[in-house]
Design a protein around this nucleic acid. Structure first.
Length: 276
DNA sequence: AGTGTATCCTGCAGGC
DNA sequence: TGCCTGCAGGATACAC
């Protein structure tokens, strides 16, 4: 999916269209997107005003009044589209009608996503279970390094675990590791302080740059107005198997672990320290 | 604690 | 053209 930069881009597009609007009703076309019954969902959403549109990790979070949280996780192929949109909704799952006549559609080809309506308590505990926001000032290199030392899991798996850092997915995990010159399979606790700090910086710069470019569209991702992101051409390793490393010319490798592809430059990101 | 495996679901690209 | 396989930005549950 949509990782943090894509969710952030969608939020920025949604905010002006949704802020202050009342959801007059919701129509559920694909009930498996919800985590409750369609009836209960409709009843809990209808009549609430959208007070704030925000993001936590990869989740798009709308704060409603009377107090409730509409939380959207886009899974692999989810979209939140305001109409009229540049790309038509091919697989609509939930359709919200606003009091000003506006329409918001949750669209999802594979339906791995989720649209949930939570109580403030439910949302609070959900959010508390997630790791720090990587772009928040409270997320420091020092902190991250300390937490890396407590884990033996491969660093790429560590980065994908939303309880450790919120919002990093497979694209940006791989990109950040390449920038920091760290092999994705290295156990987290084998990173040196220098590497940990470099990785922390790399995560932030990779995410910030992706947001600046409107997110990465490989296939399905679209922003709230249906437009593609422009970040795909800036990827340095993700999906670049057998293409030359931009830094050193060595062929990029693809390896698989934790059920996901990892991409790396074997020269820039050695698995073991090598002596030169 | 960590890992591999499978699952949810659809579509697309590539090989033959 | 058609059929087959593998692959996909995520998250979770399971057995070991």
């Amino acid at each position: 999916m949509p990782e943090l930069p894509e969710a952030e881009t969608i939020v920025r597009g949604l905010r002006p269209a949704l802020h202050g609007k009342v959801i007059s009703r919701a129509r559920v076309l694909r009930a498996d997107i919800l985590r409750t019954s369609p009836t209960r969902f409709r009843e809990r959403v209808a009549g609430r005003r959208i007070q704030h549109v925000g993001r936590r990790g990869k989740n798009i979070v709308m704060e409603l009044d009377p107090p409730a949280f509409l939380v959207v996780n886009l899974g692999m192929t989810g979209r939140l589209l305001t109409l009229p949109s540049a790309s038509p909704s091919t697989h609509p799952a939930v359709r919200f009608t606003l009091d000003d006549g506006g329409v918001l559609i949750y669209d999802d080809v594979r339906r791995f996503g989720a649209v949930e309506i939570l109580t403030p308590d439910e949302w609070e505990s959900r959010s508390a279970a997630m790791g720090p926001e990587p772009l928040d000032g409270r997320f420091t290199g020092r902190d991250m390094f300390a937490r890396l030392q407590a884990s033996r899991s491969p660093i790429r798996s560590w980065l994908l675990d939303q309880r450790r850092v919120a919002g990093v997915g497979n694209i940006y995990a791989n990109e950040a590791l390449w920038r920091a010159r760290v092999h994705p399979a290295r156990p987290a606790n084998t990173l040196t302080r220098k590497e940990g700090v470099a990785l922390h910086r790399a995560i932030r710069s990779v995410l910030l740059s992706a947001i600046e470019h409107g997110g990465t569209t490989l296939r399905n991702y679209r922003d709230a107005s249906g437009k593609r992101g422009n970040n795909a051409s800036r990827l340095c390793v993700y999906g670049r198997v057998r293409k030359p490393c931009i830094r050193c010319g060595t062929e990029i490798e693809r390896i698989v672990f934790g059920n996901r592809s990892a991409f790396l430059c074997p020269e820039c990101q050695p698995r073991e320290k090598h002596h030169t």
